[in-house]
Amino acid sequence: MNHNPKLPNTEYSTIYLLGHSESIKVYDSKPDLDIWNAFNKGDEIAFNYIYKMYVTVLFKYGCQVSRDHNHIQDCIQNIFIDLRRKRGQLNEVQSIKAYLFKILYRELIRKSNKSKEAVHQYPEKIPNNFSIEFSQETKLIQQENSQEKIERIQGAINKLTCRQRQAILLFYEEGMTYKEISVAMDFSEVKSARKVIYRALATMKTLLQTKSENEV
């Protein structure tokens, strides 16, 4: 018992009701541009919405770059803190997800390499970045595509470059458009995103064909 009413009680159990579900009701059907502008103007509900919608996928994406979960969590925290501080001066954003992916990727790399030059080399230095798992879900498909074939595809995927795997994952796992991929991967033109994807698929095809011919 605290007998001195003047003593602040430091052992509060704190219950946070974040009101995040409410934010969904307000912003769910609005275009990204509007949500972003509201956030830029200081609307906390818009912030809650952005946080709720993207923090989980950001973390997942971060896990494809780094194995250090605390590091990823810190980086996510930092990018949101930074965005909040820059409210009022933020540029317009057409795809919030693609933009957040871009700045998280930058932050992850910058934080793990102090020198700026390393930024662009980094992805190739760690070949395990953006590992792809090729797995089929339904039994039907497994009958159609033999286990052997799946393994072959898996093997071909692993021969792709890190940037190609990154693009493939953004395309198929995240369901991003070419435009969004170009934002997330810091390409100046959408065309570059298309090129990376096409080239990756072409490489895979070649690899698969060569292999099957060898086997025959």
Partner: peptide
């Protein structure tokens, strides 16, 4: 649908 992240750590 078969293309997935190899790492699937949950947030």
């Amino acid at each position: 649908r078969s293309v997935k992240y190899a790492d699937n750590t949950e947030f």
